[in-house]
Computed example of a mutant assay.
Amino acid sequence: MRAALILSLLPMAAPADVLECRLFPEGGGAELLVAFGIDRTQFAPPLNPDEPPRRQESRVAMGDETFAAEPLLFDDGRRGFWTGDRQDGALLMMIAPDSRATLSTQDGAVFTGDCEDLQ
């Protein structure tokens, strides 16, 4: 469902990670669905050293909201995104190589759960 939205926002020829996550607030509460894609070609080194830095961007669907975020990829297999541009405050999402996920909000709320690779 949300993955279809994310897939529609990514260039189809690009190698991409498409993730859908089911998260719950610490202490219990309603499920939060988060889906986003990471276009790995955004992380490729420049072909020419004179190229300007590339803007790395992912589209995120979270609940009823869709927004842009900066994708994160680490050598140890962790993935995620960060954004400080939302009206409701900054978010940091980190997904471990075993698919366990944590979403932290600017106001201190923490959501945890699991993610599934859809592509």
Rank of each mutant, 00 (worst) to 15 (best):
M1N: 12
A3D: 15
A4T: 14
L5T: 13
L5D: 14
L7T: 10
L9N: 07
L9C: 11
L10A: 12
L10K: 06
M12L: 11
A13D: 15
A14M: 06
A14G: 02
A14F: 06
P15I: 04
P15Y: 09
A16R: 13
V18D: 07
V18F: 10
V18Q: 08
R22V: 09
L23I: 03
L23Q: 06
L23K: 07
F24W: 13
P25Q: 05
E26P: 01
G27W: 07
G28E: 09
G29P: 03
A30W: 03
A30P: 02
A30C: 01
A30N: 11
A30M: 08
E31C: 10
L32D: 01
L32G: 03
V34L: 14
F36S: 01
G37C: 07
I38M: 03
I38E: 05
R40W: 15
T41K: 12
T41C: 00
Q42R: 05
Q42S: 07
F43P: 13
F43L: 13
P45E: 07
P46H: 13
P46W: 10
L47S: 13
N48E: 14
E51H: 06
P52H: 03
P52T: 04
R54H: 05
R54W: 01
R55E: 13
R55T: 13
Q56R: 15
E57I: 13
E57D: 08
S58F: 02
V60R: 01
A61I: 04
A61R: 04
M62Y: 01
G63S: 08
G63R: 06
D64M: 09
F67M: 01
A68C: 00
A68N: 13
A69C: 10
A69L: 12
E70P: 00
P71N: 06
L72P: 00
L72K: 13
D76I: 11
G77L: 12
G77N: 07
G77H: 08
R79P: 02
G80F: 02
G80K: 08
G80V: 08
T83M: 05
T83N: 05
T83Y: 04
D85L: 13
R86C: 07
Q87I: 09
D88A: 14
D88R: 12
G89T: 04
G89S: 02
G89F: 12
L91E: 05
L91Q: 11
L92V: 14
M93V: 09
M94A: 05
M94T: 15
I95C: 04
A96C: 00
A96H: 12
P97A: 09
P97V: 11
P97Y: 06
D98V: 08
D98P: 10
S99T: 15
R100I: 00
R100V: 08
A101L: 03
T102N: 02
L103W: 03
L103D: 08
L103K: 04
T105N: 00
Q106Y: 10
Q106K: 14
Q106F: 12
G108C: 03
T112G: 08
D114I: 09
D114N: 10
D114S: 13
C115V: 08
C115H: 09
C115E: 12
D117G: 08
